[in-house]
Every structure is written in C-alpha cells, then in structure tokens.
Simulated scan of single mutants.
Amino acid sequence: MNDLCAGRVVIVTGAARGLGRAHALAFAQAGARVVVNDYGVGLDGTGASTSPAAEVVAEIKALDGDAVANVDDVASWNGAAQLVSTAIETYGRLDVLVNNAGFLRDRMLVNLNEDEWDAVVRVHLKGHFAPLRHASTHWRAEAKAGRPVDARVINTSSGAGLQGSVGQGNYSAAKAGIATLTLVAAAELARYGITCNAIAPAARTRMTEHTFTAMAAPTDGFDAMAPANVSPLVVWLGSAESRDVTGRMFEVDGGRITVADGWRPGPTSDKGARWDPAELGPVVRDLLAHTQPPVPVYGSSGSLA
C-alpha cells in the first residue's frame, strides 16, 4: 500500500476485468476509494451481469481497501449520470474518472455492418463522453461554489486510434475520436481545476488475447503484457502530483512509457493564390519528400504488429 491517492475517490469504468480491474486494484492500493463500474457484458458487448464488478469490490475489500460496485451502462446518458451519483452519494466527492470500458466487433470494412459500427462507436466514444460530461458538470458546479477542485480524467485510446488497425475500422475511429476528445476536454476544463489525459495501452486482455498470446514472459519473470504494468501511470495521472500535466497522450506497455506526438503542421507550400489542379503534382510530391512517412497501420504490410 502507498498513499499517493489517499482520500481520493476514483471511478473506473469497465473495471471488472483486464486493464480496468488492474487500475481499480492499483488505485485501492494507493489509498483511493474506488467505484468499480462494469456492465458485465461479454467481449462483443452482449449479455450483462452484476457479478464481475462485485468480485473486484470483494478483492479490494480483502486488501483492506474501500470500494463500491456500479453496474450502469456508461454509454447510456442516464447510466453515466447514475455512475457519477454513485461516487458522490457513497463517498461525498469525486476526484478521478478513468474511462476504460469497451468491447470489440472486428470486421474488414467491406463486411462491417451498421449495427457493428454503431455498437462499438457507442460504447467507446459515447461511453467516454457521457461520464466525462456528468463528472465535469459536477466539478464545474463545485468550482463555481468556491470549493477547490483538483480533478482528473484519464481516457483510454489505443494504438489503433493513433495509427489505425486493419479489421478494426469501427474501433480505430472511436479510439481516434477519444484522442481528440481528450484534447478538447483538457482545453475547456482547465479553468475548473480539471486535467484530462489519455493512454494508448498495450496489454494482454480479453480484447487482445489473440494478439499477445504468443508473447511469453521473459526468463526473468517479467510479463511485459500484463495489464498491471499499465496501471502505475494511470494512478499517477490520477494523483495530485499530476496537476500540471494535461492534454497529453501516453503510449504505455510493459516498462515503457512514450509521449505520443499528435498531428501538427509539417512542410508547407504557399502560392499566395488559388492553385490549378494541374500544377499540384510536383508541389505535393515535394512536400511529401520533406516529411516523415506515416507509421504503418497495424496489420498492414510493413507493420510490426
């Protein structure tokens, strides 16, 4: 146990398994009181159960921590509101929101149907926005009432959201949306004492087990793909120490943490007048010759994944 987050109240969505469970346990070990949210659905988002969240709460209490279960659907407007209310009604406050919940319905674009697109965008993108909206409304009211706010939002994007992933057009689009939502939230909410950052983790979970199953633990016993490797950064981002860090994206896996640089202006050619399409061939090729090639899409030719 440590006291990095002592007294802080933390919501973790999708906290019954994988990364979410690891985050919830790590926050509890850092002295936080944790709202363990999980709708209890399967990998594809079907079915629902209250048991998974309750099991993590029991784990935390067995470690002498303090936690409460919540089984609301975070992609439901009312469910997200109830989630925030659970924290405030149980503990009297809310300090940290970790948006982590999600599921997969992978298909190549030519086979991806409307329901599969809508379901994944809903749970990932709306499932980040709705809790963020209700939490930030609460924090803004606190700030306007003259009560100090030192709040944190940690969103979960993905390497797929930063550079795309073959067979995951819906997931990649949603995770890219989360990345830019994080930037907007950081800019808009700073005045109220709220920071917002995001992580792009790589770990062995239900969603990635087929990708990382073949990656065995090294002989020194360190499993680089264990979800718990990601949680220390999430806990630190949720602590008071991180109040000067906002609007950042961190790629994290194993013992590695990387600050991801987002889109920014590169080489430019300005004619000072409207271009003729026929003259743009050499102009565009010259611009591309003076910039770095894009990182390959995961699963495409030349990708390491």
Results as ranks from 00 to 15, higher is better:
A226E: 01
P227V: 07
P227S: 07
A228W: 04
A228D: 12
N229V: 06
N229R: 14
V230D: 00
V230F: 02
V230P: 00
V230M: 02
S231E: 09
S231W: 05
S231N: 07
S231Q: 09
S231I: 04
P232Y: 03
P232F: 03
L233G: 00
L233T: 03
L233E: 05
L233S: 08
V234N: 01
W236A: 00
L237C: 07
L237S: 04
L237R: 02
G238N: 00
S239G: 10
S239A: 15
A240I: 06
A240P: 09
E241S: 13
E241D: 15
E241A: 15
E241R: 11
S242N: 09
S242R: 01
R243P: 00
R243A: 14
V245G: 02
T246Q: 04
T246L: 02
G247W: 00
G247K: 05
G247D: 00
G247R: 06
R248V: 10
R248N: 11
R248E: 14
R248G: 02
M249H: 08
M249A: 04
M249I: 15
F250V: 02
F250P: 01
E251N: 08
E251W: 10
D253E: 11
D253N: 13
D253P: 00
D253K: 10
G254M: 07
G254H: 07
G254I: 09
G255T: 15
G255Y: 10
I257A: 05
T258M: 10
T258N: 12
V259S: 08
A260Q: 11
A260S: 11
D261N: 11
D261T: 15
D261H: 13
G262R: 13
W263M: 12
R264S: 15
R264T: 14
R264L: 11
G266V: 10
G266N: 11
P267M: 07
P267F: 05
P267Y: 06
P267Q: 08
T268S: 14
